[in-house]
Amino acid sequence: MKTQLRKKPAARPFFQYPRKWLLAALLFSQTLLAIDVYQFDTPQQEALYRHLTEELRCLVCQNQNIADSDADLAKDLRQEVAQFVKQGKTQEEIIDYLVQRYGDFVRYSPPVRIDTIVLWTLPFAVLLFGGWGLIRTIKANNQTNAAAIAKTHSQPTSADSPTEPDS
């Protein structure tokens, strides 16, 4: 057993660790694979394309957006989005186009509507409810603490022998 050799951390430079390279390659491979190159006329168009493909859900692999997904359908949808952006369509027009075909499910942020209002308000309601409960508990604790302190502190003044207050 070469325990001594193993315990000593070798002072090798980073590029001599093949496993780290492998890990780095694995981490980046997925995002790199899904990149296809589209030429846009303006940086604004490119930004819109980026924003849209990150905002739209891939329907095949549902926990990915269409920018990151390597699914065939995601590629097709990226192509559609790129074409629309180049034609000068607005963000709303492009999102509407896809929602008409695939439903609200393609959007990662659901629209605010009557049937989605619970979805949008519930987290804030829970937060408010929790905050209210927290404040109530803290106040109640403070009151009992104050009462307990008042009780222990009042004893030395009334009694002759000094007693040590509780820490």
Partner: peptide, 13 residues
């Protein structure tokens, strides 16, 4: 072949 009509139909698989 291109899959454009399928997109119009909302096909995802």
């Amino acid at each position: 072949y291109e899959g454009r009509t399928a997109i119009d139909f909302g096909v995802y698989g």
